[in-house]
């Protein structure tokens, strides 16, 4: 069977000044897109209705998924950075994807009734190991500074994860080895019945967690 590919969205509209304030599409961004591409057939089979990216940033990842899956799903993005929300919508729009964003922490402002119906959840978290006080220390730092083990932000999401995903939902989380991915897997198991597997592992490594 031929592999289905995902087109990398264009993001020429992002100026150098923009990239001072939002996380520029980088190696890990494309790695996450690669992981989605690798799983695309599985994702298609889910017939997802709602796809949401936490920390949407430039919007490149969810736009890539949106252009591959088409308008049969709704696409949403959240970010604590209002400017990123705006830019992400622009990225999606320029690539023919309808993405709606709103500014909030994780998915805190999404009603419980909707939370349980997210079929594809994506998160390229702030995972870099830093001092705790670097988290949210500047606009751009909110995109990468992860505190101890690079996990201080990530770990806050886990307890609510099983109530966010739909029964068939999948969660794509990008991690690197300093985040102790194995430890993350066992934490996830504590909070639900997640089966997690690395989709791509290249030292950066990524986890794909299924309910």
């Amino acid at each position: 069977m031929s592999e289905i590919s995902i087109k990398t969205p264009s993001f020429n509209h992002l100026s150098a000044a923009d990239l001072d304030l939002i996380y520029a599409p980088s190696e890990d961004t494309f790695l996450l897109i690669d992981a989605l591409e690798k799983d695309l057939k599985e994702i298609f089979k889910l017939e997802p209705c709602i796809c949401l990216e936490i920390g949407v940033g430039s919007g490149v990842v969810i736009t890539a998924l949106g252009s591959a899956l088409g308008p049969s799903s709704l696409y949403f993005g959240t970010d604590v950075n209002e400017f990123a929300c705006k830019k992400a919508e622009e990225t999606a729009h320029l690539n023919g994807v309808t993405l709606k964003t709103f500014c909030c922490n994780f998915v805190d402002s999404v009603p419980d009734s909707v939370k349980g119906s997210i079929d594809v959840l994506i998160f390229n978290p702030p995972y870099v190991v830093t001092e705790s006080d670097e988290i949210l220390s500047s606009p751009l730092a909110s995109a990468w500074a992860g505190g101890e083990k690079g996990r201080e932000v990530i770990d806050k999401l886990f307890p609510s994860l099983s109530s966010i995903l739909s029964p068939r939902g999948v969660f794509y989380l990008l991690l690197e080895k300093n985040n102790k991915p194995k430890e993350v897997s066992s934490i996830l198991e504590q909070f639900g019945i997640f089966k997690s597997q690395a989709v791509i592992d290249n030292g950066h490594g990524k986890k794909n967690c299924r309910v």
Binding site: L74, F76, K86, E89, E90, H93, K100, T101, F102, C104, N105, D108, S109, V110, P111, D112, V114
Partner: peptide, 19 residues
């Protein structure tokens, strides 16, 4: 920034203040 897309009712449907 010149706005391209803005809040639609779809988004409103996704929002609560229960945090």
């Amino acid at each position: 920034i010149k706005s391209i897309r803005n809040m639609k009712l779809i988004t409103h449907n996704m929002l609560t203040s229960n945090a």
